[in-house]
Design a protein around this nucleic acid. Structure first.
Lengths: 130, 130
DNA sequence: CCGTATCCAAAAGGATACTG
DNA sequence: CAGTATCCTTTTGGATACGG
């Protein structure tokens, strides 16, 4: 039996990790949800459908590229619906799907926690830095 | 009064956005929480304190660099405590602080949602791609 | 109005080597 | 055991220009 090098050990560990990821889609989904634009866009759709320009205003500072990219991903994942009205100019409405609605309370809770505990966090930072 | 160029408009909008961010620390905190390693490490500490190596095993695939960086940030933000026992070799324990405990249900809910809805998301993706 | 396409700078993050 | 330091690749994401 051949001696195994450290590099071979590492390569094997990495394959095992990749396999685990492939076999655990929930981990990948968790990574997806851990995106700031996802959280912000879902929260922006909390109180009803919005048009593209409306979202762009609500989620201040988001670039066209990131907004479109995030919306496409959310649509593909079944969290957001996209409705095109073929007027001139075209009108596009985004809304939470039932699946997206089921996620909303969760991401809203994250936002609320941030709102409610920012002062404690800042105090901790000041203590740590000082 | 001078005519304002498009570039100047953009620059002003960007300053306004930056100012808003500076005045809204909750937004920055939300961005922090929207980090996959943060979610994973906090969940890894859910059932009690863990040592560095233990966390490294639990959060499979995390590099030393990212684990240390995440732990330092969480410690600075007051979410995780770091306890050094000066034995030989040294022993370091990480645990959730009360503040971290208050956040745990929220991030645990995100994880649970991912676990419970991954099949629906994958079905949506298949429908979107097909 | 609602995007897409491209380029490019900045940041994230893994690999590796080394230390108390 | 629990890191730190460095290099270097990959990814992210903003700016800009253009199209249906």
């Amino acid at each position: 039996m051949a001696t195994r090098t450290a590099a071979e050990h590492r390569a094997e560990a990495r394959r095992a990790y990749d396999a685990y990821l492939a076999g655990c889609p929930a981990r990948q989904l968790l990574d997806r949800l851990s995106d700031k634009w996802v959280t912000l866009v879902l929260n922006a759709l909390a109180d009803g459908p919005r048009r593209y320009a409306g979202l762009s205003r609500k989620v201040a500072g988001v670039s066209q590229k990131m907004l479109t990219q995030t919306l496409r991903t959310l649509e593909r994942d079944g969290l957001v619906s996209r409705t095109v009205t073929p007027s001139v100019p075209v009108r596009v409405d985004y809304a939470l799907t039932p699946l997206g609605e089921s996620l909303l309370p969760v991401v809203a809770a994250v936002k609320e926690w941030a709102d409610g505990h920012i002062e404690e966090v800042e105090a901790a930072r000041a203590a740590y830095d000082g």
